[in-house]
Design a binder for these strands. Structure first.
Length: 212
DNA sequence: ACCCAGGTGGCCC
DNA sequence: GGGCCACATGGG
C-alpha cells in the first residue's frame, strides 16, 4: 500500500467528511434498481458536460416517464430521446450511447440489479465494449451505479496526481492501479476519495439529481 | 468572443 | 503511450 495516498485520503476525509453527505444520491448505500439506473444514465450525460446540464437532461426524461432502462430500450427511434436530452450536448452521439447501454443491459441481464452481481472484470469489459463508454464512464457506472470497488480516474484525479507528484505515468490504467493498490479495496472508500478530490479542487460540492 | 464542463473514438507518429 | 481533433450545449 502507498501510505502517502492513503494519508491524503484520511486528511481529506477529516476535512470534508463522508461523500454520502456531499453527494447523497450517488453514494447512499441502499439504492433501488431505479436509482442505480438514474446514476448510470447520469454518467453518460456528464461526459464532457456540466453537471447542471446533465441534471436538466435527467429531469426531462423524468417528466416524460422515460427515466428507466426498460423504457428507453423500448423506444422505436431516437427522435424523442434526442429532443429530451439535447441540453446534455453531443446530440448526435449521446442518445445512441444511452440507448445502446439500456438495450444491452435490458436484453442481456434484465436490469442493473442483475448486472451488478456478475464478475466485476467481466462487467467492466462488457461496458467497455459498448460504443461511447470508455474507462471513466465504465468505472463511474461500476462504482456508483453498481457499488463495485472500481476506482474512477477523471480530470480532477489527474490534476490531483500532478499537483502532489504521485506518479510519473499519467495514463488511465496506471493511475487506476496506483489508487487501487494504495487503498483498501472498498466501494465506500473509492467513492469518498473520488468525490473528496473533486470537492477539494472546486471548493464546494456540486449537486446532481437532487430530488429525483 | 472566447473558455470551460466528471469523455470518447479516430487518426497519426 | 501520447498528442490532436471533432463532437454540441449552456453558463460565465
Amino acid at each position: 500500500m502507498n501510505d502517502k495516498i492513503y494519508t491524503f485520503y484520511q486528511n481529506l476525509y477529516k476535512k470534508y467528511g463522508p461523500a454520502e453527505k456531499i453527494w447523497p444520491d450517488w453514494c447512499k448505500s441502499h439504492k433501488s434498481n431505479r436509482e442505480r439506473e438514474i446514476v448510470a444514465i447520469g454518467a453518460i450525460f456528464t461526459q464532457r458536460t456540466s453537471w447542471r446540464n446533465a441534471d436538466l437532461a435527467l429531469r426531462n426524461l423524468k417528466k416524460e416517464k422515460l427515466l428507466s432502462f426498460q423504457k428507453i430500450s423500448q423506444l422505436k427511434n431516437l427522435k424523442k430521446l434526442t429532443k429530451l436530452i439535447r441540453v446534455a450536448g453531443f446530440y448526435q452521439s449521446k442518445p445512441k450511447r444511452l440507448y445502446d447501454l439500456c438495450s444491452f443491459i435490458n436484453q442481456e441481464y434484465k436490469n442493473l440489479e442483475k448486472f451488478r452481481k456478475i464478475d466485476q472484470g467481466l462487467a467492466r469489459e462488457k461496458l467497455l465494449s459498448l460504443n461511447g463508454i470508455g474507462p471513466e464512464t465504465a468505472d463511474t457506472i461500476l462504482l456508483y451505479a453498481c457499488d463495485r470497488p472500481s476506482f474512477v480516474i477523471d480530470e480532477y484525479t489527474k490534476r490531483f496526481v500532478k499537483k502532489h507528484r504521485l506518479s510519473q505515468r499519467q495514463d488511465y490504467d496506471s493511475l487506476k492501479q496506483l489508487f487501487e493498490k494504495s487503498l483498501p479495496k472498498s466501494t465506500r472508500i473509492y467513492q469518498n476519495f473520488h468525490i473528496l478530490i473533486i470537492v477539494d479542487q472546486k471548493g464546494k460540492a456540486a449537486s446532481m439529481m437532487a430530488k429525483i
